[in-house]
Amino acid sequence: MHNFWTACGHQHLTRNARGWMSPTPDYWRLWLQRPEMALVPESCKEEIRLHQALLDNPLMQVAPAQLQAFKDDDARENYELFLRFRSDVESAGSLESAYMAWQHSGNIQLPPLFIDVVVQAIVCNVLADEQDAWVWRAAELLFRRQRITIEGGRVLSGDSDTLDTLQATGGLGEMGRLLMEGGAPLKAVDVKVLHPDNAERYLAQREGLGRYAFLLDMTHELQNQLPHGLILSMVNARSGLKALSVVLGRWVQHFLGVAVSIEPVQKVDDPAWRWHVGLDATATALLNDLYQGTELSTQRQQQLISLFKLRFDNPQDMRADVQGKPVYLGLAMNEQGLLKLKPQNLLLNLPLAREV
């Protein structure tokens, strides 16, 4: 999977003794080529000079006066953010160490884009030997906002930015946008649900609009209407929730060094419910209310995508007061049908016996 998701720069990282990812000079060169940092025709001489110097020596020290000489305020701010980001990662020694430091600080002074690109590169490390398309597609939830739709009883997750772009351009980029603004009819873009018939095509996609144009079926249980009014319920063998459980389990193992098993569940029927973690802001609020016994409105109930049960393989890794008990996880969309998973919640809020 070395050529998968190359835009995040994972191919320019090296593993340290702990198995965490440390940057090489080429990693920083790739950042300098991103749209936020790349030169444009309007770039002033001072920006051009500094950009070339950083390409030659990505770890060079930059004096404040060099940035003050920029004529464009936005360009100056982008460089300040990049240099802060570079300093944080180099000081921490790895992307994982920097990510944990940001989360523990509670005051992240970097744009969400920076954090999402870091998470994407870390996911590539976590899934380095994975060949399952569903696991890779589920992993997108850790760093890409999703739009959830329900069609025919199926819960489908699509990349929000990609769907919005396709809707605005008909899949033809800026030309498509202009044509649509001019009233020209465009052929609808065919967005596919990930399926055994197209799984290889998903894995073969490189960068570009098609990279995130596959929907993930998050339906855990399928129901078939049988004669005489009977309903047959079956677990979806290719549920995106099962694939997401795999990703989250490996995420915890990679960062915290503890083995856990995670499985989707339909409800929490546990009188001894002791611990829960919301995987996003909406789910956190929902689980808190459920734990307190607050009755949820029908609308809020419909926002809940799934519950999960997490168990520690070794109960000794848990705090003594909850040892051996399951941890319940929740995943939910907001009122607009959007889901932004927060993978850091699993790293900061599990009942560990020791600090990590």
Rank of each mutant, 00 (worst) to 15 (best):
L142P: 09
L142W: 05
L142K: 05
F143D: 13
F143K: 06
R144Y: 11
R145H: 10
Q146S: 12
Q146E: 09
Q146C: 03
Q146K: 09
R147L: 11
R147S: 09
T149I: 13
I150M: 05
E151G: 01
E151I: 14
E151S: 11
G152K: 14
G153P: 14
V155A: 08
L156N: 03
L156P: 03
L156F: 05
S157H: 04
G158V: 02
G158A: 06
G158W: 04
G158C: 02
D159Q: 11
D159T: 03
D159F: 02
D161R: 10
D161F: 04
D161E: 15
T162S: 13
L163Q: 12
D164R: 10
T165Q: 00
T165W: 01
L166S: 00
L166H: 02
L166T: 05
Q167G: 03
Q167M: 01
A168I: 00
A168C: 02
A168E: 08
T169M: 04
G170D: 06
G170C: 02
G171Y: 00
G171A: 01
L172S: 04
G173E: 04
G173N: 03
E174I: 00
G176A: 03
G176R: 01
R177G: 02
R177A: 04
L178E: 15
L179V: 04
L179G: 00
L179M: 13
L179Q: 06
M180K: 14
M180D: 07
M180L: 15
E181L: 11
E181A: 10
E181V: 06
E181D: 13
G182M: 14
G183T: 10
G183W: 11
G183Q: 12
A184V: 15
P185I: 08
P185H: 01
P185S: 08
P185Y: 09
L186Q: 08
L186P: 04
A188R: 15
A188Q: 13
A188D: 14
A188N: 12
V189W: 12
D190K: 11
D190S: 12
V191D: 06
V191S: 12
K192D: 13
K192E: 15
K192I: 07
V193E: 14
V193N: 10
V193D: 12
L194N: 07
L194S: 11
L194W: 09
P196S: 04
P196W: 08
D197I: 10
D197H: 13
N198C: 14
N198F: 08
A199T: 05
A199N: 09
E200V: 05
E200S: 11
R201C: 05
Y202M: 07
Y202W: 07
L203N: 03
A204H: 09
A204L: 08
R206F: 00
R206K: 14
E207N: 04
E207M: 02
E207G: 05
L209Q: 14
